[in-house]
Simulated scan of single mutants.
Amino acid sequence: MGDDARSAVDDLPPLEARGVTVGYGGRMVIEDLDVAIPPGVITTIIGPNGCGKSTLLRTLSRLLKPAKGTVVLDGADIVKLKTRDVAKKLGLLPQAPVAPDGLTVADLVAKGRHPHQSWLRQWSSDDAAVVERALAMTGVSDLADRPVDTLSGGQRQRVWISMTLAQGTDLLLLDEPTTYLDLAHAIDVLDLVDDLHESGRTVVMVLHDLNLATRYSDNLIVMRAGSILAEGHPRDVITAELLYEAFGLRAKVIDDPVGDRPLIVPMGRAHVQSG
């Protein structure tokens, strides 16, 4: 394959939704939505509560089957792929995952290798090496023998991300990975996500904190009422007008004094200077 052809393949979106309609109990949450996830960057889905952020992520990961439309993973209809084949391509961290009582960190992370096991291919030294590398990448090697349910929130999130890394996928979907974390631990986890992106992975995540989403994303998908309102680089997307349209939020958008992205300054009624 020539360089131009190889570049064209590399630029294809690894994950797409085409005309997707999804709902619960007869109520449609997302209707006729199209989106293509760019490869090799961090894409973050933001929007007000109930707008369909997690529904979209769950649909992209095949946890939800669309009533209409298609989700395409590496060029194939994700519904027609075997579960094992999807797990070899896509790692998912759902909201607030729970490990069985007493399960150790090493045993949980090892579960990430299950898609690669079969009656012909049993656990090997290669699998053990992958698990050790995943533990090291997330900085939890020293916790390997600890029960997961004894860890702090930040430690648990790192362990769950380690498990998704052990799957060996280049595509990671993270549904609110900073939920229940204080700001310091949230930044710690997002720094880890950024490291994973720098190592070549494509990341799609849902975040509630707008400034963290702006700081850590290369591509934003802004949703409202089950539709995509805007999409693009934070510098091109985040404006005071968009924030009001999407969230009903009055805010000023200024240059981040410690970064190269916009910074959102909410404007409530208290302690706001006039003029």
Rank of each mutant, 00 (worst) to 15 (best):
G40A: 15
V9P: 05
A270C: 03
P266A: 07
D4A: 15
L92V: 15
G248L: 11
F247E: 06
D145M: 08
D10L: 15
L33V: 08
L181T: 09
V130S: 11
M1S: 11
A213R: 00
S162D: 06
T214K: 02
R269P: 03
S217K: 02
E198Q: 12
S54K: 04
T55Q: 10
Q122T: 13
G139N: 06
G75M: 14
P13R: 00
E231M: 14
P177G: 05
N219W: 11
G168L: 09
L243W: 02
A36R: 11
D149T: 10
H208A: 06
V222T: 06
G40M: 03
E16I: 07
L212R: 14
G47R: 00
Q155G: 06
K89S: 08
D149P: 02
L192N: 03
G275V: 07
Y180S: 14
F247K: 07
G168V: 07
R121H: 13
A230W: 03
R84Y: 02
P100F: 04
A230F: 14
V265C: 10
P234A: 04
K80Y: 07
A186P: 03
G52K: 05
T179M: 10
R62V: 11
V193S: 00
L171A: 05
A230Y: 12
L210K: 11
D194V: 01
V258G: 03
K89N: 04
E241Q: 13
L165R: 01
G2N: 15
L172T: 01
L56P: 00
E198T: 08
Q155W: 10
M223Q: 12
H116C: 13
A246M: 07
V41T: 15
D107L: 01
D85G: 01
L263T: 03
E176R: 02
L93T: 02
K82R: 09
D236Q: 09
S199Y: 07
D260G: 11
P100L: 05
H114N: 13
S7Q: 15
R250G: 05
H114C: 13
D218A: 09
D191E: 06
L120Q: 11
A87V: 05
H116Y: 14
D142W: 04
R146W: 06
L173V: 08
A76Y: 01
M163V: 09
E16R: 14
D32N: 15
L57G: 10
V20Q: 07
V41P: 00
V109Y: 00
L249H: 07
R146S: 06
L220S: 05
P234V: 02
P66M: 01
I254T: 11
V189S: 04
G2P: 07
M1C: 09
V258M: 10
S125Q: 12
Q157T: 01
D260Q: 10
S274M: 13
W160L: 07
